[in-house]
């Protein structure tokens, strides 16, 4: 998937051409493409008037930015303290088995990506995960298995 400058122009043009817009720019570009392909870093660098090295430096610093495409469903396991105490490890391992991938990987059919996040902020209902923008709470390994049987079925519809 090659993205040209013209594809991104409408997005880039909503930002001022100044170095301090760099993070917002990268967020907008990733919001559009789902990740940051290498060739895009140069485009962003030219727009923000900074060296490419700085774009890479910033993009690699923050955990939000990805250099690889992700699946259509992003499954994020909360590894917050409350979730940890209430068995987040079991949930992550069950997800790894259910989806057949390890943390940080994407299924071959590009349906699911599995990641961990610092804290979703639903600590009162731990352990929890998010699938896209939706949060599932008070999970057990059993619930996870059920949840992902359903999700896989709907994905194949």
């Amino acid at each position: 998937m090659a993205s040209t400058d013209t594809d991104l122009a409408p997005i880039l043009d909503t930002f001022e051409r100044r170095p301090e817009t760099l993070i917002s720019l990268l967020q907008a570009v990733q919001g559009r493409l789902g990740y940051l392909p290498p060739e895009v870093l140069g485009t962003v660098a030219r727009h923000a008037r900074v060296p490419r090295s700085r774009v890479y430096g910033v993009a690699s610093f923050y955990s939000q930015f990805r250099f690889n495409p992700v699946g259509r469903h992003r499954v994020a396991v909360c590894r917050g303290t409350a979730c940890h105490v209430r068995g987040a490890r079991l949930i992550l391992e069950e997800l790894e088995r259910s989806l057949g991938i390890k943390e940080g990987q994407t299924t071959e059919d590009m349906e699911y990506s599995l990641e961990t996040v610092a804290c979703i902020g639903c600590c009162g209902l731990s352990p929890c995960i998010s699938v896209g923008d939706e949060v599932s709470a008070k999970l057990t390994a059993k619930k996870v298995r059920k949840l992902f049987k359903n999700a896989q079925r709907s994905a194949h519809k």
Partner: peptide, 26 residues
């Protein structure tokens, strides 16, 4: 409003400022 990009250290004042300025949050 500025959206953070996922770095715990940006809760530290000077790192937060670096991030607001579009730099690595150090």
């Amino acid at each position: 409003v500025k959206e953070g990009a996922g770095a715990f250290v940006c809760g530290e004042e000077t790192a937060l400022i670096a991030s607001l300025e579009g730099r690595r949050g150090m």
